[in-house]
Amino acid sequence: MSKVVVIDDEPFILMMIEDKLKKAGIHVVTLRESRDALSVIRREKPDLVILDWMMPEVSGIDICRMVKADAEIKETPVFLLTAKGQDADKQIGLQCGASMYITKPFSPKALLEIVSKVIDGK
C-alpha cells in the first residue's frame, strides 16, 4: 500500500486530500505542525510528500530542502501545494527539488491523478 505524507497548516486542506487519496487506496499521514515534518517523513518513509509552502515555524520550501539534503529520504518525491502562484515562486520551488508545483485552488481529482502517476511510476 502506497503511503503519502501531507503537511499543511489548513486542516480542511488536509481533510480534503486525505479523503480523496484514501478512496484511491493510498495510506495518508497528515501533519499540521511543520516543525515535526522531517522526523515524521523519516519515520513514515512515504512514497510521496505533499507540502504547503506558507506555514508558520518551518516553511514547505525549507522542509523540501531538508528532505533533499537527507541521504536516507532524498529520493522521496515532493509536491509543493501552495497559494503562491507567481512564476518566480514556481522557479524557486522547483529549484529546491520539488517534483511538482501545484497552485491553490486545486482540483482533488487532478491531484489524485498526478499522485497516482508518481506512485505507480516509482
Partner: peptide
C-alpha cells in the same frame, strides 16, 4: 500578489470540496 495568495486558500476549500461533493465522494 498578497491578496491573490490569501484568496487562494479559502478558494481551495470551496473549489476542492464542492468538486468532491459533486462527485459524491
Amino acid at each position: 500578489t498578497t491578496v491573490s495568495h490569501e484568496f487562494r486558500t479559502p478558494l481551495s476549500a470551496i473549489i476542492g470540496m464542492t468538486e468532491m461533493l459533486i462527485e459524491r465522494e
